[in-house]
Structures are given as structure tokens and as C-alpha cells.
Design a protein around this nucleic acid. Structure first.
Lengths: 205, 205, 205, 205
DNA sequence: GATGAATGAGCGTTCATTCAT
DNA sequence: AATGAATGAACGCTCATTCAT
């Protein structure tokens, strides 16, 4: 199948996953029929069920595949010997780059999993929390080092951080804010800069 | 309740709305059958359709009812002659108080509308953006007054602000972070404090 | 209610019937809700059920009211001492005049009763047949007098006659054929003339 | 059946259509539930929707399937080099034979489509008119040849013709007139004979 | 007589999933 | 592996009818 995008020869399983990304991104999970995925993949209806136990299993695989990359990246960033602010910026950049690289998949993950607290969000809560925790740990470390204020709850910051970045991605996804290359470059740093230094001008700056 | 559209003894319409809040909060919109709402309200199935055009119309009324309170509050806060940071804190506090006062309704609004970009979120985008805009305008005013840094895009801040606060509410709703009275008191100020002053300790402070 | 058409003062029952004619004509019986009738009559929902046992009862009254006029007219025409052809022409003319006088009611009767063999047609079959029978009896009389051919079954002619005329009315109702005053004048005679004398030119005529 | 779209062993699609004929004939379209069709076909509920978009689509297929046969037959009869009266008789006979051969299907078509001007009749008006037109054209040709009287509007005759024949079929369907083989044989000729030559005895006959 | 809120059975349609081939 | 026909539970919505006032 030479016209199959980014799949090995006859890798129908991969074709189904990739098709699912496109269809979920286009229609949303709930409005996507299993038939839509099969059609988009150019594959027989039943084959989806040959490779996946259910429609939900397809979504889960998509999420897990990507989220584990984020967790791995967070972990390796966390382990690096760099300032806390660099670490936070690294995570923000990783998320935003993920979006730039594969906006459809990230749209699906943000919209259908991370922010869908009543469906997939509930199911994958533990993995989602692990991502928040990296941020919280970075902040806690910073507090121990004395560079961050102690009255701020690190867990709050973890949520704050992801809440803000996901909202940004949502804004791009739905066209609420301009999605240019330049914006992408600045956005992550801007979030981190604001989070760390605040909105207010420093005295004498 | 003089500002209520229709009220009276045995106001079944209100009973249906209140029941819908409970059921939507408990099961989520998609898992809620119209029959569940009717049962919860102790009312005949068809009466839901006597008062509302569809299940979606019930949700829409719930959202609009509450969101307009937020917009009104935002407006009156915005018009006050107080420092920008007070205004932001006022909005944050209003949202959090709304949650404390009626957590089920706020859960429904956050989870099913505000963060459900593929369903109700899309439908109510204009109203949702209006809320973000108040924050953006406060920030822009602050920039004009010279107290806020100019390199930060006010629209971005509008999104972060809501992203962060909604994530906080989500955290409470789903038990990710402790939801004590004390936390509620501090949370709004903490978000605003962090947003305005940053995480880092002020030099010499 | 001075703006009520052809009703005595506050004759709500009549108003409901007249409204029903308009709504049935406009939307058809099946697509008409009881609420539509009440709205059209400017009357409360429940009042329809105060005066009529059911939606069907409204239709039945409409039909019976009019059909009995046709039966009476047929009867008096039948009793007259005029040639058979005049009698047939009289009946045809009566039907067509009924349509000219009150096209909406006749539309309802033809479309929803007379030709709706699975619903009202079945219910009112006896009355409908009585109308056919007048035609059959006229033909049978004609046969006895020797002016009509004997090999034609009078009952067949009864059906033929009504089938043809109702089709004509249907044609007018649905715009298949032009519905001008002139057409109305000629149509009845044309049917009878054709029925009696045939399409073919008489030798030497 | 070489002209059948899809046929084969265990043709469930065909089974559904055949079942629909029986159930529509028995209960009428409106009183038929999709479940009735599935049950009658001995097939799962959902399979009806696998093969047909809606209940209406089933009816439409039934009608189109049969009506196109009538149009084809009318066309080939029209093209033949035979007297006008033969052509009319040919069409009448075709319709009546269709009824003899498959009374249930014809009942459905006549009762639910052809004479249901407010539902299917409206939808299929163009095809229905095409049938009337063949008759009109035969009459018009006859007028041009000088054998038919010119004061009769051919379009009117098209409607009478079908009105009369359909009424006859209705009479058989609902037992208003005897439906014996002998009657069937005579009926078509009687309609045409009456239409062409009229009821009255020819002078000197 | 008049109102319109209240009832609830009924039905068309969808679609995830299973299964025979 | 691959196909797509077959299954049937589930659900939103309609609307004739009833009833309390």
C-alpha cells in the first residue's frame, strides 16, 4: 500500500491508529463511529476489532503512547542538573513542541482525555497526575533550595501550570488565539516567566 | 428570589433544573438519561420536554444562568476603582465562592461546558470568551498604567488565569487536592499572588 | 371575538372545527398536533378535549358534517324527474361546487378520508359507499330504461365516477392541473359527458 | 431474475423487502413498526437499518421497483403501432395484472403512495405524473388522428383513467366489489370501453 | 366553560460489538 | 489476517390524552 502515510508495508494496525487520530481530532471521540475509523484507514470494519478490544481501547492506546513520552521527557528533564526555571521551561517547551509536531494527536489528548474529566480523564487520572507531580516536585525542590516562596503549595502550582498550558493549547486548537510559529516559540517561556517572576514589573527594572 | 424568571409553589420547572444539576454532576451529561432527570425531580418524563426543548436545552439554561452571574460580577468588579490585582483576586474569589456555594453546578459547568471544547464549549464559546476578556482588559489596563510588564500578551493571561482556576476546581471536584474551607480561602489569592508576583522570592523580601 | 370567521359570538366549538379544517388542509391529519388546532383556533389546549373526545373525533365531525350534505344532495337529485345524465351531472357539479366553495374542507375530506383507505376511509366506508350507490342506482335505472348498456356493472361505474372526480380534485389541490373558474365550470360536465358518451367521436357527429 | 439488483442465497435484503410488503399491506405504513418488518423477515432489528436508511426508504424502494415496471410497460405499449384504445386497454390490463400477480404490493403502492397525496404521494409525484402522461399522450394522439373528440382535455383523461382504475383496485382491496378472476378479466376492458365509447347505447345498437 | 400543566407509552434510529466465512 | 453482515440494547423525543384548578 504505497499510499499509506507513515506506516510500514501493510501495517494495518498502525493505519488504524493514525486514522483514529485524524477522525477523533476532526469529529471528537463521541461523534466518531468505529466505521469512520475503518473508512479513514481504508480497512474493513471488523479489523478494528481484530486489533483493538473496543473503540475506547484505540483511544487509550493513542493517549498512553503519547503521554508516556511526556512522562519520560519530564523525568529526564527533572533529573538534569539545571535551575528549576529551566526545568519548567523544558517541560512547557516539550508540550508545545508536541503540539507543533502533531497537532491532531495533541488536540485529541487534551480535549478528549486530559480535560474530559468524566470519561477518559477519570480513567487515566493516575498517569495524568504523574505529569503534574513532576512540576510539583520541581517547585518543592525550588522551595527547599530557598529560591521559591514557601507559602505556595507545590501541588497547586502543578495544576496551575498544566491548566494554563492546556488552556493555551485549547486556544490554538480552537482558533481563540493566533497560532503562528513565533507565538509557539514565545508561549512556553512566557508562561514560565510569568509563573516564576510574576506579572508585575520588578522594582527598578 | 426576585430575579428568578419563574418561581412559585411547586415550581416543577425549577425542580427539573435542580435535579439536572445533581444528575449531571453525578453521572456526567452524556451518561445522563432524560429519564434520570425526571426521576430525580420526581416528575413525569414528558414534563422535561414540556419545559425544555431538549436535554441540551436544560444544560444550556444551567450554564447560561450561572455564567451570566459571573459576567455580571466580572463587569462590576472591572468597573470598580481598585488596583488591578484586587480585581483579579475579586474574580478568582467569585469563581471559587460559586464553587463553594454550589459545587455540583460549578462542576457541571466546568466539566461539561467550559472544558468540553467539542460539545458545549464550542456552542458557548462567545460567552466563555467574554469572561476571559475581562481578565485580559484588567491586565491591559495594568500595562497601560505601567504596573504590568508589557511583553506579556493580555489575552494569554486571560486564558492562563481561567485555565489555572478551572484546573484547581477540577482538582477539588475529583479529589486531586484537598478541598477544605481553608484551602478555598487561600486558593484564589494564591493564584493571583503567583500570577502577579511570581513564584520567586523577591530579592531581600 | 369579532375577528372570528363564520362563528357566532364565542362559539369556541365552531372555532375549533374551522381551525381544524385549516390545519388539516395545510399539514395533513397525521402531521397535525392537537396543539396546532388549539393554537389556530386561539383556544386553550384542553378545550379541544372538552368539546371532542379525541383528535379523530374532530376529523370525523368534519367529514360527517360535509358528507351528509353530499348524501342529501345526491338523494334529492336522485329523486328528481330528470334524465340520468342530468342526475350524474348534478352530483358532479355538487362535488365540484363544494370544492370551489370550501377547498380546504374538501381537500381534507378527499385526501384524509375518502382516499385514505387505511385510516378514516375504513372507518367511514359505509357512508362513502352510500354516495357511490347513488351513482350506481342512477346507472341501473338508466339500464332498465334502456338508455345505458347492460354489460356495464353499475357498481363499477359508481367507483369509476368517484375515482375520476376525486382524482380531478386531487389534481387541483396539488396543482397538477390548472384550477381556474373556467376549468371548474367545464370539468364536471366533461367527466359526465365522457362517461356517458365516450371519448370517441360519434359517427357523423 | 437477471434484472434484480442483488440476489443470492439467504438474501436478507430481499427478505426484508418482501416482509415489508406483507406488513405494510396488513397494517398500513403508519401502523407498521420497524420491529414488525424485522420480525416478519425473521431478521434482527438492526439489519433493516443495515440495508435501508430508514423505514421510508424501504417503502420508497418498494414503490420505485414496481412503478418503474409500470412506466416501462407504458412506454413500450405507447410505442406500439396499435389503435389508441388498445393502448389504453394494454395499460389498464397491465395494472390489473400487477394486482392479480401481487395484490399485497399493489395494495401498498395504491393505498400508501399513489393515493396518499400528503405523504409518499407528494414525494413521488413526478414519477406518478409520468404514468398519467402516457395516457394523456395516447389521447392527444387520438385527437390528432381525429378519432377522439377535441374538447376533452387529455390531461384530464389521464387523471380520470388512473382515478377510475385505482378506485377499482381499492374496491377489490377493501372488498367493496367482488374480486373474482372473471371480474379481473373484464374490469380493465370495461373501464376502457366506457371511457372510449361511453355508457350510452349507440344509436341503432 | 376554560386553561395548560402533567403524564407516560411508544417509536424511529444509532452504533458498539459479535460472528460466520 | 481480513471482511462486512448480523445483532439488539439503548435513548432522545413526540404527542394524544388526562386532570387539577
Amino acid at each position: 500500500m504505497p499510499d499509506q502515510v507513515k506506516t510500514g508495508p501493510a501495517d494495518k494496525r498502525r493505519a488504524i491508529l493514525d486514522a483514529a487520530i485524524r477522525v477523533f481530532a476532526r469529529q471528537g471521540y463521541h461523534s466518531t463511529r468505529v466505521a469512520d475509523i475503518a473508512d479513514e484507514a481504508g480497512v474493513a470494519y471488523g479489523l478494528v476489532y481484530h486489533y483493538f478490544r473496543s473503540k475506547e481501547a484505540v483511544m487509550t492506546e493513542l493517549f498512553t503512547e503519547r503521554w508516556s513520552l511526556l512522562l519520560d521527557a519530564s523525568d529526564s528533564i527533572y533529573e538534569q542538573d539545571i535551575p528549576a526555571r529551566e526545568k519548567l521551561a523544558g517541560i512547557a517547551r516539550f508540550i508545545i513542541d508536541s503540539y507543533r509536531h502533531d497537532p491532531e494527536l495533541m488536540k485529541v489528548i487534551i480535549v478528549e482525555v486530559t480535560r474530559a474529566a468524566n470519561s477518559f480523564g477519570a480513567t487515566h487520572l493516575p498517569e495524568i497526575r504523574r505529569a503534574y507531580d513532576f512540576v510539583a516536585r520541581i517547585v518543592a525542590d525550588g522551595q527547599r533550595e530557598g529560591i521559591y516562596r514557601e507559602e505556595i503549595d507545590p501541588d497547586f502550582v502543578g495544576m496551575w501550570f498544566y491548566g494554563a498550558i492546556e488552556q493555551l493549547l485549547s486556544g490554538w486548537v480552537f482558533g481563540l488565539i493566533p497560532a503562528t510559529d513565533e507565538e509557539f516559540e514565545r508561549a512556553g517561556d512566557m508562561v514560565v516567566e510569568t509563573l516564576c517572576c510574576g506579572l508585575e514589573r520588578r522594582d527598578g527594572a
